[in-house]
């Protein structure tokens, strides 16, 4: 394949490689299984969020409420299980959380597809509503004694081992969910007319309407889908953290959207790839996990991420402009 420097994916992949190279020079222990499993583990929840966020961006909208949906679904499910059905297996808990996520997503969808309101405004509103409702009516106390089903899930390991220096590393089965989400989303986006309709709407909403794409139904689907993904990410987050904290997750939404934009999705809609999204997430997790290795204080994290976004989105745009001027 030809190296295309106007693509974000190439650039992000390059930055990731450069970052790893520098880290490996500074800390020879950097290139090791523990680093890799930490990176993969750190990418599970962010990755699922990012895939959902990308789908919305591609459809020409934006969703900032998904973290609140995730927190709501995660906490409510845990509370339900603890109080009424402690014996339920983990997969039943997952289904409940996804159903709650879908329901909240449908609430977004109702306002956006049903009443035709702007997506940013609706989801900014529901972000506050979901969070406020959760903390006021459902509960605001940490649940650290998770139901047994969820505890079981957190112990399921895909890979487990010991490094030469005696340190442990492991990768939980939760990672398989990220893979599953990517596969399902890829299939929808590239193998179904529904997915193509999502791309088409992002390209031009008016054109999509004119050729008879059911834009409302498609939009509704998009928001239900992100809601479901958020519910899943939420319950995985609680299981892995072994605690259901209603104050968690909210606040991550901009980092997630940043990762997606870094991976080449456009805020104006119609553009975005799963590869790019995952690379964007990888870069952000890498920066979070390893700035310390490079001897950079963690308070610089957000500055570093900001710089990456500026370069990562600015450079391809600038190159595309130059290419256009050259091409006549």
């Amino acid at each position: 394949m030809k190296l295309d420097l106007t693509r974000n994916e190439t650039l992000v992949a390059g930055v990731i490689l450069a970052f790893c190279a520098i880290a490996a020079v500074v800390d020879p222990g950097f290139l090791s299984m523990p680093t890799l499993t930490d990176l993969l583990r750190g990418g599970i929840v962010l990755g699922i969020f990012a895939v959902g966020a990308m789908l919305v961006l591609v459809s020409g909208g934006i969703d900032v409420s998904f973290t609140a949906v995730a927190a709501f679904a995660m906490y409510t499910t845990t509370l339900l299980l603890v109080n009424w059905a402690p014996g339920l297996p983990w997969w039943a808990a997952f289904l409940v959380a996804m159903a709650i996520g879908a329901l909240l997503g449908a609430f977004n969808g109702l306002f956006i597809a049903g009443f035709g309101l702007p997506t940013l405004i609706v989801t900014l509103g529901t972000l506050s509503i979901f969070r406020g409702f959760l903390l006021t009516f459902v509960g605001s106390k940490l649940i650290s004694n998770l139901p047994p089903g969820m505890r079981d899930f957190s112990r399921l390991m895909m890979v487990r081992g010991t490094n030469a220096d005696g340190s442990f590393y492991s990768l939980p089965w939760a990672f398989a969910f990220l893979v599953g989400v990517v596969v399902v989303t890829w299939t929808i986006l590239y193998r179904t007319m529904l997915g193509r309709a999502i791309f088409a709407m992002g390209g031009s909403m008016e054109s999509a309407r004119r050729i008879g794409i059911p834009v409302r139904a498609t939009q509704f689907f998009v928001y239900v889908y992100v809601g479901t993904m958020a519910g899943l990410a939420g319950i995985i987050h609680a299981s892995m953290a072994r605690v259901a904290n209603p104050f968690d997750l909210v606040g991550l939404e901009l980092s997630v959207i940043a990762a997606v934009v870094l991976g080449g999705a456009r805020l104006a809609g119609g553009y975005g790839t799963l590869t790019g999204t995952l690379l964007g997430v990888a870069l952000i997790v890498l920066v979070r996990n390893s700035l310390i290795v490079l001897g950079i204080p963690s308070t610089w994290q957000s500055v570093a991420i900001g710089i990456l976004i500026l370069i990562g989105t600015g450079l391809p745009a600038w190159q595309a402009k130059r290419a256009a001027a050259r091409a006549a």
């Binding site: 791309f199 390209g203 999509a208 119609g270």
Partner: peptide
Amino acid sequence: FSLFPNLSVAENIGFSAELH
């Protein structure tokens, strides 16, 4: 024109036909 700028030529031409 009412085309989709982000999609390929082939997809733009085939979209309505496939949909309907």
